[in-house]
């Protein structure tokens, strides 16, 4: 018998005696049927796209992320030029994509592309990482990235400034909708990596005082394109 069978055998043996249902143990609850979506218990989200963009903006601000609406890739590139100047960027990391290509062209800095592999030290020395995403989540102010939409795993976490380019139709109301979107998109062919990014990297491990830029990016900028 292999380990898998040993452990599954122990579990089956253990489960022969039924456990009391959780909603009954303290005598106050009644059995709650599992809702298909937990949304009705979670923080509320408006129904229209404008309301959702507004909520995302507020949440992003609370999370110390920068959120900005741009009317074109050109405008986004121009804005990044300002950030580059202020931040003294010399080199950026990015992947190829229909949003990253025109914006990076406008920005015009030397770049490390992660498509098809890269040297870790090259990426580590970049001043910013430019990626796309799968979805923006209004309820939490999160950006959902995946390996294909964010140039792999490291591009969105290794450089000290992460810039996300997203389209308005990528805004979703809540986590349920975001997960549903990737499930419908990838079916059984999921990428090996998916991540909800909510603000720049942070820690409170020293005296519970918030410090941004613990190991990941110190800054997160989200640019919303049409």
């Amino acid at each position: 018998m292999n380990n898998r069978e040993i452990i599954l055998g122990r579990i089956r043996e253990a489960l022969k005696i039924a456990a009391p249902h959780p909603a009954l143990h303290d005598g106050t609850g009644t059995t709650t049927p599992l809702p298909a979506s937990p949304q009705k218990w979670l923080p509320p989200v408006g129904g229209t796209l404008e309301e959702q963009i507004e909520l995302f903006r507020r949440n992003a601000e609370d999370l110390k992320a920068e959120f900005r609406e741009c009317t074109s890739a050109n405008e986004a590139g121009q804005y990044l030029k300002k950030l580059a100047l202020a931040g003294g960027w010399k080199k950026i990391g990015r992947h190829s994509g229909e949003l990253t290509d025109p914006v990076a062209r406008e920005l015009g800095l030397p770049e490390v592309r992660t498509d098809g592999g890269y040297a870790v030290n090259d990426l580590e020395s970049c001043d910013a990482g430019l990626t796309e995403c799968e979805a923006l989540v209004a309820q939490t102010g999160s950006v959902l990235v995946s390996a294909p939409s964010a140039g792999g795993r490291a591009l969105s976490v290794l450089p000290p400034h992460h810039v996300v380019l997203a389209r308005r139709n990528q805004m979703v109301p809540d986590l349920t909708a975001a997960l549903q979107r990737v499930q419908e998109k990838f079916k059984d062919k999921f990428p090996s990596f998916l991540s909800f990014i909510s603000g720049p990297s942070r820690t409170g491990d020293i005296e519970r005082i918030l410090v941004l830029g613990a190991h990941g990016p110190k800054k997160l900028t989200i640019l919303l394109l049409p």
């Binding site: 923080p43 949440n59 609370d62 999370l63 939490t140 102010g141 999160s142 976490v157 999921f190 990428p191 090996s192 990596f193 998916l194 991540s195 909800f196 990014i197 909510s198 603000g199 720049p200 990297s201 942070r202 990941g216």
Partner: peptide, 11 residues
């Protein structure tokens, strides 16, 4: 409200 990174690894 949510932690900074919630990451899924499938392989």
């Amino acid at each position: 409200p949510i932690t900074c990174y919630n990451t899924l690894y499938g392989g």
